[in-house]
Design a protein around this nucleic acid. Structure first.
Lengths: 137, 137
DNA sequence: GTAATCAACTTGCAAAACGCAAGTTAATGA
DNA sequence: TCATTAACTTGCGTTTTGCAAGTTGATTAC
């Protein structure tokens, strides 16, 4: 369970951030929750990129431990859980927005999904505020 | 050499970005070049976080292939090479700035290095422009 | 001009992380 | 009560990482 987070000890802000969400999957999970309004294990598992189940469980646990995500029972379906971003997690909205803008500028692939890119380009502040308030989608 | 960049194929801007610099080390390398003005293999190798030599070589190659970094001989020291960020690499400045701000807000560790955080807090635009122009340090 | 040194890697191998498939547990639903 | 759903956990083979040692080519020291 222990990852190579010796990086964290460097004290550098970038290294700290990487120790929290710097793996291949965490940001995609955060994207699903922040932008797509996905909130359950099953929905996260069936996302576009195909994360495997053990890794998803591992990452969610780590995100919970680092305070980006909370987990609670779904009051309307007692066998399901609801995962939600905390304020700390939603505060990554500006990071996500800048990444989206950068990719919009440099991903020239034909199948690039430009919908979100255009949304952020058109009104970045609104995009960020919505995520911060958990208003998406 | 092939990484699990199937993510890239999803077309999502976040997944695209992760396929370029979404591993544990690339952003630290970019930070060294953008913020600290580090430009040689040896200097990168002896950074605070202690990347191993084979991984550094691998990452630099990937960053070169994806167009974030260029490599050329040092004209003043023919046995050394100079690594530099391209415009595409320097355009990550806003991403780095937002990550620094986020970490500044949430890294409460005593040994957290707040110098860069305060610099970005004080004048984010100037921080970004300097990196974009390669003026640091 | 020859030997040590330095810079930038490459190689080999053990350890860790990942990915897939199958199995477990607990709550519904038929 | 028996099948199904949701959320995981476990086993195991593959891939990636990390550490140490070795290679190559360009200075520098003697």
């Amino acid at each position: 369970m222990k990852q190579k987070n010796a990086n964290y000890d460097s004290g550098c802000p970038i290294a700290f951030a990487l120790s929290v969400f710097g793996d291949q999957w965490s940001l995609l999970i955060i994207r699903d929750m922040a932008v797509k309004g996905v909130h359950t294990y099953g929905e996260l598992l069936n996302g576009w990129e195909g994360i495997s189940t053990n890794i998803l469980a591992q990452r969610l646990k780590h995100l919970e431990e680092t305070g980006l995500v909370t987990k609670r029972r779904d009051p309307e379906n007692w066998r399901s859980f609801v995962y939600e971003l905390t304020q700390k997690g939603r505060d990554l909205a500006p990071v996500i927005a800048e990444i989206v803008l950068w990719s919009g500028k440099y991903n020239t692939a034909e199948h690039a999904m430009m919908g979100t890119v255009e949304k952020v380009q058109a009104d970045r502040k609104s995009f960020e505020v919505k995520i911060r308030n958990g208003d998406l989608p």
